[in-house]
Simulated assay, not measured.
Amino acid sequence: MPENGASEQAQRGLHALNPFAKHDSYSRQALLFHKAWSLITYLLLLITAIYYDVRAPGEGHYNRSTFWGHNFPTPFKQSAIMTSIYWIVLFVLQSVYIYHLFVENAGSVTAAANIGSHSIASNLLLFGFIHLWTRSHFILAEFLLVINFFNLSIAYFRHSTLPRLIHIGSLSGVLAWNFVALYWCGAVMVHAHGLAARVVANVFVWGVAAYGGFFLVAFKDYTMGFALSYLSFSTGVGQFLVKNPVLQLQWIFAFAIGGLLFLLSLAVGMPGLIGREPFKRGAVVDEDRERAPLLADE
């Protein structure tokens, strides 16, 4: 018995030290850490994104450019205007998420703090991504996107029932863009400009539909569906603006995927907004999540 007690105590100690662990409550010091670093990394990412949107790095790799200067005509080129609008809205929602760390509602504070370490890590990884991307270090930039994809995916599966405003700003909105950016940066990384690359891309682009469909079926998460729908439309516009769009299929597929995800997200989200739930939870969702309202409002 003493050995079992010591083992349980050690596990509790490791749980307390794990910054990504889920807690029922937080000490004053732990909350101060989340408040400070969430705000610092948010401002760091925001300022960096704005700066490199208008100015190229003054040092580094020979092929330096502004953020959208590297939006090359690959099969996954996006619309700079549409994706910029997406990130403006996302930055506003991220500020709403940070606000929840400072409210007096203990439940909201705990929910926001539970996702805090993942959000801080995401901000730092995207900060590094921007620096690498604008300096043409595309392989390393893609590597950071892969790390952040796993970081946000783990966070999503562990915290899928967060309040909606916290969920969008800290999870679904960022994860949706990160997934699309894997294609975007990857296409630039491998110099996907030829006919063969476009044929392969015509197949891979349907991965966005499959990815969004998974979240709609398994979690009934229409926020992921709408986000991926919008980003698919951004890809479609970006593809339509390249040379000879009539001779290419990528923009047609991107618009089709955007429309499909939009309609499916509307079908999943609308019943909840009018107070009805005709769809049963997906089998992936466990019993605890079954009882908890997914993405409950504040």
Rank of each mutant, 00 (worst) to 15 (best):
D288P: 04
I257T: 02
I252L: 14
A6V: 15
S79E: 07
V203K: 07
A267K: 06
T48H: 13
H191N: 12
N151M: 07
W68G: 07
M224H: 06
G69T: 08
A218S: 11
L195G: 07
G107Y: 12
F20E: 01
H70T: 08
Y62W: 11
Y86D: 00
F233D: 01
V205F: 04
L152H: 05
Y52R: 03
I139T: 14
L231I: 07
V242L: 08
F33G: 03
E3A: 12
A56Q: 10
T66F: 06
L295A: 05
L145T: 04
A121C: 14
A296D: 14
A155D: 02
E142F: 09
I147A: 05
T161A: 11
R164Q: 09
H34C: 02
I47L: 15
S27T: 14
L17P: 01
I85S: 14
P163I: 06
S117P: 08
G194C: 06
R28S: 08
A113R: 00
A210F: 14
L175P: 01
L126H: 03
W133C: 04
G258I: 06
Q11R: 15
A292H: 15
A113H: 05
R64I: 10
A201L: 03
R55I: 07
A210P: 08
A155G: 08
K243G: 07
E104I: 13
S38Y: 01
G272I: 06
H193A: 13
H23N: 12
M1I: 09
G259M: 03
L32S: 15
L273K: 13
L261M: 07
I168L: 13
I50F: 12
Y26N: 04
I166Y: 00
L231K: 00
A227I: 03
G69N: 09
R198T: 06
Q94P: 03
L144N: 01
K280E: 05
S136D: 11
G275Q: 11
K22Y: 07
G13N: 13
H15F: 12
A201G: 09
F91R: 02
L294T: 11
V205N: 00
I50H: 04
K220A: 04
Y51V: 06
V200P: 00
P75R: 02
K77R: 13
